[in-house]
């Protein structure tokens, strides 16, 4: 007799055993749709305010960013956009890796790289929004810096 096969067929009418994986895939499916809809507003608002209004791309410089982040509204906006976009994109790439990388080791390596890069982006991005200092340069002539 050969060793028992791993892919043995269960006996008919053996009770169905649900795998204990929880609802992770359902939740991430829902998250893709929910975050996607929120991102429509956040991303198009971002593109419109930064590229379409006034002088468009030519208006963007250090002072422009300082002006925007002096307002908690844009801090919260950018923070929400950062987290939702990064998690949405990370989850999307996780699906794509699962689809195309068939070897366990390849999948593991790619996902490790993915989660590592997402961690860098989230930590760096969040720190930048909250520790931003418009008066970094002591010789700054920006209004917020000369007035204090």
């Amino acid at each position: 007799m050969s060793a028992p096969s791993i892919t043995s067929i269960p006996k008919p009418r053996s009770p169905y055993k649900a795998r204990k994986t929880g609802n992770f895939e359902l939740n991430s499916w829902l998250f893709m749709r929910g975050s996607g809809l929120l991102l429509v507003v956040l991303v198009f608002g971002h593109l419109f305010v930064n590229l379409m209004v006034g002088k468009g791309v030519h208006a963007i410089d250090f002072a422009f960013v300082a002006g925007k982040w002096a307002n908690p509204f844009w801090q919260v906006w950018d923070l929400a956009m950062l987290w939702l976009a990064e998690l949405h994109g990370m989850n999307g790439l996780r699906t794509i890796i699962n689809d195309y990388a068939t070897k366990d080791t390849t999948r593991f390596v790619l996902k490790t790289l993915l989660y590592f890069s997402a961690l860098i982006v989230l930590v760096l991005g969040t720190l930048v929004i909250f520790t931003f200092d418009p008066c970094l340069d002591p010789a700054s002539t920006l209004e917020v810096c000369t007035n204090r």
């Binding site: 250090f62 950062l82 991005g125």
Partner: peptide, 19 residues
Amino acid sequence: IFFFLFAHVIDTAMVRVSP
């Protein structure tokens, strides 16, 4: 877009380096 986001967070992080 995901790859661009990576680059974009890094270029924006330059506000923390110097004007």
